[in-house]
Amino acid sequence: MTTPYTAPRPPMRETAEELRARIPGWGVDLDPADRPSYPRERYAPEETGAHWTLPEPQDGDPSRERSIEHSMLPPVYGTSCPTKGLSGVVRRYSYARFSEGRAAHWLLLLAADRIDVAESVLRSFATTRPDNPLTQTGLRAELTGHGLSSRRGRVDARHHVVDPVVVAGPWVLAGWAGWRAARRLRRALGR
């Protein structure tokens, strides 16, 4: 069946009364001007609870990395996981050199994330609780959460095969590289 392209709006399938009867609260926020986010910008600093015009700065590290699109270090910031190691050098370079508008900024940060993971894995082997990909990936949920039947017929199951490669791939590559390095070292020492 073809639908003619005419001016009237297609009629509502249910009347307002029918919708109100079927759906609790239908239309209680009908007036766009009476919705909480209208208008988008509404100058009302007295409503926020702030009793300062400028927050005082928190105790902290004035050399903390920041976007070069900021004029200064903002007064409040998170202090989780300060930069460290080679990943920290890459992160600080990315923040110091590139604005948020540059792909290089984000690609360097993503690269630093991967370096951070490698450094952290190595560091964990010097602790009493080394990284354990089996427990940390929560694979037990495959058993308790009906892994096979939950995926049956799902369109996204075809890329689930990629997930183990993404997770296990770096471990396999690192193990292979380590084995090659150890073999080369052993040969060099044996000469």
Partner: peptide, 23 residues
Amino acid sequence: CGSCYFCARGLYSNCHNVNPNAT
């Protein structure tokens, strides 16, 4: 923060005083 240009205008998710890492 409740007091910057954006918070004063109801754009609380766009606060300018709490994130050094990105604007």
